[in-house]
Amino acid sequence: MAGRRLKAELKTLLQQDDWFERLHARLDASAAPEGERLAPAAVLGSLFSFLLLDGVVRWRAATAVGMAVAVLCGTPRKGEASGGVSGKVEAGRDILRRLMWNLNEESGNVAWGAPEAMAECLAQHPWLAEEYHNILISYIDNTIHHGLWLDLPLLRRGAVWGVSRLCCARPDLMARAGRPLMAALQDCEDPEIPGLAAWGLGCLRWQEARPALTALASSPVPVTWYHDGEIVQTTVGTLAGQALAALGDA
């Protein structure tokens, strides 16, 4: 019963306008009143189940997974080497390994939401980003022999969103993502992927993308874009135009 109650409480919380602040406060053991504290490890099971839903709860659950994992790993202290605060980063690695296993065809699991949740973990914790960013990029890179490229278009859409999200959060790590995102601008299997790829290329300030982005700037193809905790209905052309603006004058 306690598990069902927690799941229902989390789902209601993720539907609120101030969900991010409220969840962050309750995951912070030093700030939340004892009766309102949420243990990061305890919420992850519910959050993973929400990744299979539709709508904003699904997307916010991915962000919440990243929040919980960041709390589990602890905040790096200035000058501290990668490896974990008192070894706690290993708990974050375990979560990422679980997400990666779900994305493996041999797992037999439904992997919806896994690339997005993985990206949020990396966006919200620097050590995890350093260790795993290349794996995330590999999910959209079909030039790697025996790579991890996701051939299911809807799943690949989530991976392109994830790579672009990390390009915006940690562009210093993501230069290798430029060429796979350029290829994604030409992805014909899913109409939303080019718009999501444009978003990431704008964050990278990838000047080589200018001609392709210009060609897409008038595209009316609709895109459902999760950004800053909200679902935005936009178009490929709008995202390409925003990316061009980020590139600045030639």
Score class of each variant (00 low, 15 high):
108 G>H: 11
203 C>A: 14
70 A>I: 02
233 Q>N: 14
104 N>Y: 09
75 T>G: 08
136 L>N: 00
50 F>R: 01
27 L>A: 04
145 H>V: 13
10 L>N: 03
102 N>H: 15
173 L>E: 09
116 E>M: 04
99 L>H: 03
117 A>H: 02
117 A>M: 01
29 A>S: 04
90 E>W: 00
205 R>W: 07
165 R>T: 10
208 E>L: 10
172 D>S: 10
128 L>T: 00
22 R>V: 01
244 L>G: 11
112 W>F: 15
95 I>D: 04
163 V>T: 12
79 G>R: 01
29 A>R: 08
91 A>D: 09
35 G>V: 10
120 E>V: 01
247 L>A: 10
249 D>H: 12
83 G>V: 01
236 V>F: 11
205 R>F: 09
170 R>W: 00
145 H>N: 11
187 D>H: 00
164 S>N: 06
224 T>E: 15
147 G>P: 00
153 P>S: 11
124 Q>G: 04
188 C>V: 08
181 L>P: 01
146 H>V: 00
133 H>N: 00
36 E>C: 03
137 I>R: 02
43 V>T: 14
171 P>Q: 08
164 S>I: 03
110 V>D: 14
10 L>D: 03
159 A>M: 03
161 W>G: 03
42 A>P: 07
133 H>K: 03
1 M>V: 12
123 A>R: 00
121 C>I: 05
5 R>M: 11
142 N>S: 12
3 G>V: 09
217 A>R: 06
249 D>L: 13
71 V>T: 03
43 V>L: 10
57 V>Q: 08
15 Q>R: 15
76 P>F: 06
18 D>Q: 07
215 A>H: 12
51 L>R: 09
228 D>A: 14
217 A>D: 05
121 C>K: 03
226 Y>F: 02
130 E>L: 06
211 P>D: 09
105 E>L: 06
109 N>Q: 15
179 R>C: 11
7 K>M: 07
58 R>N: 06
